Amino acid sequence: MDLKGKAALVTGGGSGMGAATARALAAAGAKVALLDVQEDKAKALAAELGGVAIACDVTSASDVERAIAAAAAAHGPARIAVNCAGVATAGRIVGKDGPLSLDAFRKVIEINLIGTFNVLRLAAAGMQSLEPLADGERGLIVNTASVAAFEGQVGQAAYAASKGGIVGLTLPAARELARVGVRVVTIAPGLIETPLFAGLNEAAVASLVESTVYPKRLGKPEEFAKLVVHVAENVLLNGETIRLDGAVRLNVK
């Protein structure tokens, strides 16, 4: 897909990988709408990129419907939707204070997995009626999983389950939406330098980096964004989960 002039939605677009993705899509010529619960951050970046910022809770059907409609009013119907909104709340199944709160587990699933599906279903519904492009393509949905989907660590039960759900969603969604020319691809990042790492001390970060094969460093949000742009431009990528991780394999702890 040629990104020039195409309308794109990015959830979690106000920070981290979402912000980097919004920048990369805009640099490639796309018209970008940033959907985020942190509206102030999204507005600041949207002003810089010439895009629009829309307050949106991805777990709410009405919020996402309203946000997609507002983005379409500004830029036209979206051809690209990138799901970057998510949380990485940690918690042991049974900790010092007893079993993990069911509400805590549910919240991670609601935001990461159900939020992703909510945007996917509503974005795809809008894409299916668009005029086909080359190869009959009408749109693209890129989801964000994690290497934790495959080797979740202790304390990541909720997070790994939510990201594993996104991986499991990818192929059936791609197969179903193929009939209307909508591709679905998931990226599973490894250790990416985002605000989620801000609370870790240097020793903890160094320990995580040590498990990376090459390059021996944290990934950059811009590297995630570059892959999103490549996926958009390469129509043969579909129904796949792509690890972006420097060959890291997370240890047990």
Rank of each mutant, 00 (worst) to 15 (best):
T11C: 12
A22I: 01
G51E: 07
V252R: 14
Y159K: 10
L100P: 00
V119S: 06
A104T: 13
A158W: 01
G246L: 00
K4D: 13
L208A: 08
G136C: 00
K41V: 02
A225Q: 03
G219S: 06
T116V: 06
R66K: 15
G98N: 08
V185K: 08
E240A: 13
E240S: 15
K43G: 13
S211A: 10
G126F: 00
G95R: 02
V37K: 14
V228R: 03
G50A: 08
D135H: 11
A225T: 05
D245Y: 06
D2A: 14
R66W: 00
A70Q: 13
E176F: 05
G5E: 11
R183M: 08
L196R: 00
V142E: 02
L130R: 09
E151W: 05
A7L: 02
L237T: 13
L120T: 13
S129L: 07
L191Q: 09
D135A: 12
A145T: 12
E131L: 09
L227N: 00
G246R: 04
V213Q: 08
R217W: 05
H230Q: 04
L237C: 11
A69I: 04
V10T: 01
A145M: 12
V205M: 02
A145H: 09
A161N: 08
G51T: 13
T116A: 09
G155C: 03
F197G: 00
V209C: 06
A90F: 15
L227C: 01
K253A: 15
V248A: 10
A42T: 10
V228M: 06
L100M: 15
E151R: 11
F117K: 08
A178V: 06
G219C: 03
A85E: 03
D103I: 01
V205I: 15
F117Q: 12
A24L: 07
K163H: 11
D2P: 07
G91T: 14
P189G: 11
D40Y: 09
V167L: 00
A124R: 03
N238R: 13
V205A: 03
N118Q: 11
A27Q: 09
L49M: 10
L45G: 14
D40M: 13
L200D: 14
K4N: 15
E223P: 04
L45K: 11
G51D: 07
R106P: 02
P172A: 07
L200E: 12
D135R: 10
L169W: 01
